[in-house]
Amino acid sequence: MSRQQFQDDWRPFRDALLSRYPTLTDGDLSDADGSTAALAKTIAGKDGIEPAEAQQRLHEFLDGPMPADAYAAPIHDNAAVMDSGDYVPAGEDPLADDRRFGDDNVPSTPMGRDR
């Protein structure tokens, strides 16, 4: 995930941030409104650490993988579609038929019947 994504819309990251920083509240996140500096200052005050250390920890968190909840947010749909090709094995054509799985030419059995 990037800091820019967080700054543009921090709301999808809410649950991940509250899990990572249990001392934060919804109000703290709303007050920071996407500002990593303001959020780090709040974290520093609540956790009793230096603001620079809080800023570094927050940036490390934001530089890591995007939380699943945030990735599933509707604002990331286009990115998810663009990334979906990463999950298609090499040599696989996602638009090809699936005859190689062996059941395309076998008629379906009616419901409740074995044959």
Rank of each mutant, 00 (worst) to 15 (best):
F101V: 08
Y71K: 12
P51S: 03
T25Y: 01
S84A: 15
L58A: 03
E50H: 05
G91Q: 11
A32M: 13
D69K: 06
D98Q: 11
P74M: 05
G48T: 04
G34S: 05
A79D: 14
Q7S: 10
A52C: 00
A90I: 03
D31A: 13
D83Y: 11
S19W: 01
D83P: 01
D103M: 10
S19E: 05
A44C: 13
S108M: 14
T23L: 13
S108Y: 14
A40V: 00
G112E: 13
A90H: 09
A16I: 02
T23N: 09
S30V: 07
P89N: 04
D9E: 11
D104R: 13
T109P: 01
A16C: 11
G48E: 10
R115T: 11
T25G: 06
S84G: 11
Y71D: 05
D77R: 15
S19I: 01
T109L: 08
Q55L: 13
L24Q: 06
H59P: 00
D8H: 02
M111L: 12
R3W: 07
A80H: 07
G64F: 09
M82T: 11
D69H: 02
A32R: 07
D83V: 07
Q56A: 09
A79P: 13
T36P: 06
S35H: 04
Q5H: 09
V81R: 14
G27K: 12
Y21S: 01
A73T: 00
D114F: 13
D86Y: 13
A96I: 00
W10S: 06
P74Y: 00
A90K: 12
D15S: 13
G102C: 05
D98A: 07
G85D: 12
D33H: 09
T25V: 07
T42M: 04
S30E: 13
I43P: 08
A37M: 08
D9P: 00
S19P: 00
S19L: 03
P65V: 04
P51K: 02
S35L: 02
T23P: 09
W10N: 03
V106N: 11
T23I: 04
D15Q: 13
A96M: 00
D97Y: 01
E92Q: 14
P51F: 06
A90W: 12
D26I: 03
E92T: 12
D104N: 08
A80Y: 01
I49S: 15
R3L: 14
D9W: 07
R57D: 12
D103E: 08
D8I: 00
A73D: 15
A54L: 03
D103S: 10
E50M: 02
P51R: 06
D83M: 14
P65R: 08
A52I: 11
G102A: 08
V88S: 12
D93L: 05
L39D: 04
R57M: 12
H76R: 14
E50P: 00
Q5F: 02
E53F: 07
F13S: 02
A44K: 04
D97V: 09
R57I: 07
G112T: 10
D86S: 08
F6G: 10
D63Q: 10
P89C: 03
V88F: 11
A90Y: 15
T109S: 05
T25M: 07
R113D: 03
F13W: 00
R20Q: 14
H76S: 10
N78F: 09
T36F: 04
S30M: 04
Q56M: 06
